[in-house]
Each structure stands twice: as C-alpha cells, then as structure tokens.
Design a protein around this nucleic acid. Sequence first.
RNA 1: GGAGAGGUGGCAGAGUGGUCGAAUGCGCGGGUUUGCUAAACCCGUGAGCUCGUAAGGGCUCCGCAGGUUCGAAUCCUGUCCUCUCCGCCA
Length: 425
Amino acid sequence: MLDRKFILENVDAVKLNCKNRNVVADVDRFVELENDRRVKQRELDSLNQESNVIAKSIGKCKTQEERDAKKDEGRVVRDKIAALQQELKTLETEQSAIQRGIPNMAHPDCPIGDDDGANTVVCYGKTPLPKWSEGFKPLDHVELAEKYDLIDFEGGARVAGAGFYFLKNEAVLLELALEQFAINKLVKKGFTPTITPDLAKNSVLQGTGYIPRGNETQIYTIENTELSLIATAEITLGGLLADETIDSERLPLKFCGVSHCFRTEAGAAGRASRGLYRVHQFSKVEMFVFCLPDQSEAFHEELLGIEREIFDELEIPYQVVDTATGDLGGPAYRKYDIEAWMPGRNTYGEVTSTSNCTDYQARRLNARYKVKGEKGAHYLHTLNGTAVAISRALLAVLEMGQQEDGTIVMPNVLRPYLPFDRIAR
RNA sequence: GGAGAGGUGGCAGAGUGGUCGAAUGCGCGGGUUUGCUAAACCCGUGAGCUCGUAAGGGCUCCGCAGGUUCGAAUCCUGUCCUCUCCGCCA
C-alpha cells in the first residue's frame, strides 16, 4: 500500500495513477477520512494524557475523599476515551479498505493504457522463430505428450478434476532438470536457494497483495484454518521478512524458492487454456529480492536479464513486454513479462513475469531496514521474478524441440541434468 | 493429539498493579586516558505517530487480541509461537 502521508500530499498524482491503472478508488474520501483521523487522534492523545495525569496523581492523594473524587474524574475521562476510540476504529476500517485498494504508483516510463493491448514489446530473444519445412505441421504439446505418454490429463482430472495432470516419463525428468538448471544458475548469481512451504497464512497472502477470499480470488484456502495454498513462492519469500527490521549491511538479500503453485483460475474458463497452459497446479522456481530503495531499478533489470538468459539458453524464441499501467496489478511499480513463442498456439504466451514493487509490498508486510548510525527504520524495496514456471516452460521446450522426424530434442543446457538428449520411441 | 514451561529493548536477563519505556550485563556509537592497539573510565544508545523553526513536549507499543482497574509488563480470558516430556508418524 501507499503511505498515508504520501497520498495526502500527492492527491492529484495518485488519482491520475488510479485512472491510468484502471482502478477505482475513492481517493477524495480517503483524504477526508485521513484529515478527520488526524484530528481525532490528536484529541485522543490529549485525553490519554489527561487520564495519565489523573491516574498518577491518585497514588499521591492524602485522603480517601480526595482519592474517590479523582477516581470519578478518571472514570469520566476513560468513558470519553472509549467512545473516541470506537469512532476512530470505524473510521480507520473504512480508510484502510480504501488505502489497500489504491495501487502502487507506476514507473514514469510504463506504457499508459487500459489493458494488455497497450503493452509494448521491448526486445526479442536470441533464438529465431522455428523454420520448419513447407508442409510440416508441428504438433502442440498436448499432442506431443500423448504421442510419447508424457502427461496424463485424464488421470489428473479423475483424481483432482479438470486442470490437474500427472507428468509422466521424460516429462518428470524434464521438470526436475529445469528446476536444477534454474537453481544452479541462480546460486551462481548469488541467490540463496530455498524450498518454501506450499501453504501460507492468510495474513502473509494479504501482506504480499494476494486476496485469499472473495469472488475473483485465485487462491485455494484450507477450510477451518487460516492457511491458503500459495499461488507463487513470491508469497512465502516475501513473508520471510514480514515484521522484521534488518540491518542495511545485510542487503541486498536475494532468494530463490522452489514451490508448487496453486491457482483456482476462477473465471478463466474458455480462454486459451488447452493442456498445460493454464492449470491449477504447477511447480515454479521464483526469484525474490529485498534491497535498498536506490537499488531496486537496477535489480529489476538484473532479474529480467536472468530470465532472458534462461530462455535464450533453453533455445526458446521470445519477446519481452513492458506491461501497460492498466495491466500491472496492484503492487507493481513496473513489470516485464517474457512471452515465449508457442508453436502450438502459433503466438507468444507469457512464461515469466518480473515486478519491481518498490516499498508497496514492504509497507504492508512491515519489512524494514535500518542504517547503522542513522535514526529510524525505512521500508525495503521488494522485487520478484519468475525463473522458470515449469508447466509453461515445459510446454515451450516440447513444442520448440520437435523435429520434422517427430522426435523432440532437448536444449543443450539441460543435458547435464537429463539421461537422454531427445525424446523418441 | 495429551501434559507442562515460557514469550520483556540488537542479544542475555530483572521486573511487589502506581515513582517502568522498563534494572543490570554484553554489544554498539561518542569521549577521556594512552607511542599504536587493547584495557580502564565517562557519556549516549528501541520503534511508530504527533506538536514545535528549534530546544523540547505529548501519545502508543513489554508475542497478538480482548477484559478488570482511576491506573496493567505485572491480574483475568482467548489466541499464536517457542521449548520439554508422552503418544503417533514420513
């Protein structure tokens, strides 16, 4: 969320940003409530002071009568305090609901537009689009998977419903290889590898900007608990420093996390969802960075650079997209997606996403840093990025690797992790 | 799952319901002394909000949320977490 004071001092900019991002938020009402809150808070402070003075004076009273008189006085003040507190609470509830709905400010260079149609392509990957001979019709990954018995969608549906699947045979080894490839690379780049919980407390979900309940929620919640299945390890990794204040000398902290990701995909039926493209569960290696404010833009470029390196090395053609304001999502200040070429869909499809959330996420998580010798603590900046989302990467690797003889060649970089270099029968 | 114990400042660790935002030690910052370093000594050292040009003042925070009271770190209830023992188990 944004800082209350910042909103108050930048009303017009915040409103314009909401408009650009296609978000409806009653900023005026927020300002009204904030002004009211400040007045009431000051009143409350002075009432508390009054009550403290009375309470302290009782200890020094000489006579019982004096004492009783003071007690009555104190009781009156306490009643006033209780009433005022109630008012404040009501006010703050409404206010923070509005505040949470106000999205992060956007980077000045973000393309402005209502939806993904306004996204701009920034650059392309090293690998050229596939050139198959005239007349060769590439199979999509569902057909390839069937041909080589790599994915059992029917079995997944029988066991867990539509949107679930069993990986089988080479696909299993391919998932593990992709994970190892990504993790090894990230460790070399200074990321601390983790395997995170696949569940998190709802408070952590909210801190990272995910909403566990509601109509449009993407989140599976666990009945009778305060836990949800995570949609990404961004949630667990972000939660790692919730309510912590860390020494600036320890920064930056770069983590990568392997986790399963669960998404209900409510309302996504009918959209491009064949096969592995849109599923309820997949594995992912996620990058997450906590850093100082003046470092976050550079780290954002670094995360994008790593993602590009991974997909270049996987020999998958892609384009990089700078996400338009209307398509950013709440916490992001700027977001780049890599869209890989997917021959089966004959178009690009999103395979990674990296966001600079500046202090927006950290404020809600209460994740701060302190500079030695300086007074006060400040909010960290947080960034996240997909290293490899296995389902979609697998899809791209299978479709892009297919040869005209029907076999599927594995990218060179995965060979150290695979006991085969092509899928053939 | 059952039975106990405990959660206090960066850490360790005190704390009769009022004089406690909190002793003490360590750590950290500054200073004195000293060829240098160390030691010793002295001073300072949590966060957020708020009033003030400033000096300085006020409020809140002792896991979290409530309650009792004129007054709660201290009493009560709930909750979360940690530790020990038992059971169960990959």
